[in-house]
Design a protein around this nucleic acid. Structure first.
Lengths: 168, 168
DNA sequence: CCTTTTAACCGAATCATCTTCGAATGAAAA
DNA sequence: TTTTCATTCGAAGATGATTCGGTTAAAAGG
């Protein structure tokens, strides 16, 4: 794959290719991250371009993976999930970490990250109630190699959104 | 739980009205939470209903607030935000907490919750790099009434999504 | 038991929006 | 200069969203 002769580009590590976006791209991304149901006509007014031009840009942003998809945002409480909790799980070996990652298919689990710091895995859980959270916790604590679990129970949520393109 | 006499409307606390959803509603919600670009025709095949019937249900789910909206999911790395971090900020008084909540308008801040437990506010931050995270941290630490900040830096993300309607 | 009401569903038709197309523009490379 | 490439536009065509009237079926009430 790598052509030794001509480098063409400067020698820069671009492992996770930050796409190059102009101000218009960022405006579009911001508008769609806020409300993806906007029509191209509406977007075209926001950025002062024609609808097909916006369409081309969105197509490109999707192809390049900047826009990973569009999803419906559901209300956890309305679904009966009233108890949002963040767990920091301290594991003593990698096999325990691997076992923790299998919790990804639980519907109450929303996020799953390995983290540096004193913990090892961070889990965002939206449980139905204290009872189901407790059984979830016990299930984790009983895993071989889990040293400790710290729980942060959310009282009020003031902001919850995805990555934003920043001030553009 | 079941009231023997008249169950018409049992005396139940419904403070945050969990909407009553049947299996079809949940299937629709699950499908849209995964990919909101699906057409009504496609959804109608999934749940074995006509397109207008699905449309009616979706309209109701939106009206009742179960579907809060639809958003485009962006790739943090492609936007140049490569450093995902969770901060647990321990505050000594409410005025400090209030000041923390004003960080909601920062583009790098994605979540902001008050939490029970040893911390007081939990912040999800997606910063451009270590440098900008550091300046963000210093800004928080220098706030009057902020006792300590614990940082959990994400190494790998294995799951990241919103509330799901559960197995339906 | 029968009637009324309500809610949910469907097929067909309408309407808005998405998507494609060809041409024009302008900027960078040859 | 000439070519190439990317971006834009208006207009047209395709796709999907939305509305409508009619049907069914289940609950409410006499």
């Amino acid at each position: 794959m790598p052509v030794p002769g001509k480098e063409k580009d400067a020698v820069r590590q671009v492992r996770h290719h930050p796409a190059d976006l102009d101000a218009i791209d960022r405006k579009i991304l911001g508008a769609l991250a806020e409300d993806a149901s906007r029509s191209y006509a509406e977007l075209s007014k926001i950025v002062n371009l024609s609808a097909p031009a916006v369409h081309d840009r969105v197509k490109r942003l999707k192809r390049d993976g900047v826009i990973k998809g569009t999803v419906a945002v559901l209300d956890g409480c309305k679904l009966g999930r009233t108890l949002l909790t963040f767990l920091v799980v301290d594991t003593s070996n990698y096999s325990a970490t691997r076992k923790l990652l299998t919790f990804a298919d639980r519907p109450e689990v929303e996020e799953l990250h390995t983290v540096a710091g004193d913990g090892c895995v961070l889990v965002k859980v939206r449980a139905d109630d204290t009872e189901s959270l407790e059984s979830f916790l016990m299930e984790i604590q009983s895993l071989e190699g889990v040293r400790s679990v710290r729980s942060y129970i959310a009282l009020s949520t003031f902001l919850e959104r995805g990555p934003s393109p920043g001030p553009g």
